[in-house]
Amino acid sequence: MLFREAYALGLPSQGTDVAVIWDHLYLFLLWLSVFFFILVVGGMLYFAVKYKKSSGAKPKYIVDNHALELFWTIVPTILLLVIFGWGWSVYKKMVHAPTNAMEIRVIGKQWLWNFQYDDGRVLTNEVYVPQNVPVKFVMSSEDVIHGFFIPNFRVKSDVVPGMFTTIWFEAKQAGEHQVFCTEYCGASHSLMLAKVKVLEADKWEAFKRGKPVQVTGAKPEASLTQLSLPEQGAKLVAAKGCNACHNATGDAGGIGPTYKGLFGHDVELADGSTVKADENYIRESIMTPTAKIVKGYNPVMPPFQGIVNETEMNAIIAYIKSLQ
């Protein structure tokens, strides 16, 4: 561990066994590169000092040296083949999921991640998985190419419309692990984030039964029932990915309209008509967003029918109402 802390400049923490063997190969390449860098650039600087023009010295007439040239062709070739072979052995472990791996389906869309469990539950931008159990993500996209990347697990795959791609991991560290979208997918690409939440066995059992769980290392969260309705709504719009396009600051330059000052006011639509922003307008705009398009914005929002339930809807509306 000490070795790693001291030398693995900037690598993320090792959330899986694959991350450990990945780091070995990475550090080998890093130190091999340092060696060659010193050899080439150090050699160059040494020559620069030693053979600096001086009055007495005459440059030596050397055209080539076949033995030396053969040496610096063959030795790197062998080294590169070793690196390739080592890489291939790590790669196979990285991409071949054990046959007993638990499957979770991942759907990417502009600009959020949905996680679909066997029991029918769908979570947005957070996925709970058990510790020390191989988990396989079967991933697809509803629109353009996205990329699913968990730095702590050293796994990544593009998420491509029209086909399935997979990644797998067996998480060793309980707690939260960051997910990034890594394939450029439009305006809110950099806000298309999620968290993998790794649960110890007992918490995993609780999660499966639908009980609220406290993720190790995460800030203790007030349970929804302890919060006021607008506070619940604020948590929900963050969790459902709404904030990738909408904001509470009143800035009209976002992908979608701002929440601030919306409720109770007239909204100008793309077809020139106006509509008053009441409860029904907000419900419709969430469930079937393309029904009414606000002037100046593109019809890009996905429908949340079946993702947001009545209790959540009320909380979100209360939140928007509170932002006057």
């Binding site: 990945w22 190969l25 990475y26 390449l29 590169s33 060659f36 860098f37 080439v40 650039v41 160059m44 620069a48 590169l80 690196i83 390739f84 080592w86 890489g87 291939w88 790590v90 790669y91 990285m94 990329g147 990347f149 730095p151 050293r154 796994v155 990544k156 795959s157 890594t182 394939e183």
Partner: peptide
Amino acid sequence: MGFIELFTIGGLTGVFLATLPIDVHLTDT
């Protein structure tokens, strides 16, 4: 000489990216 310094770093990090599993983590970053 600046070319040699920078290009050596560029070339060596190219070997990182040519190595399959290393690229999986580093690509698109």
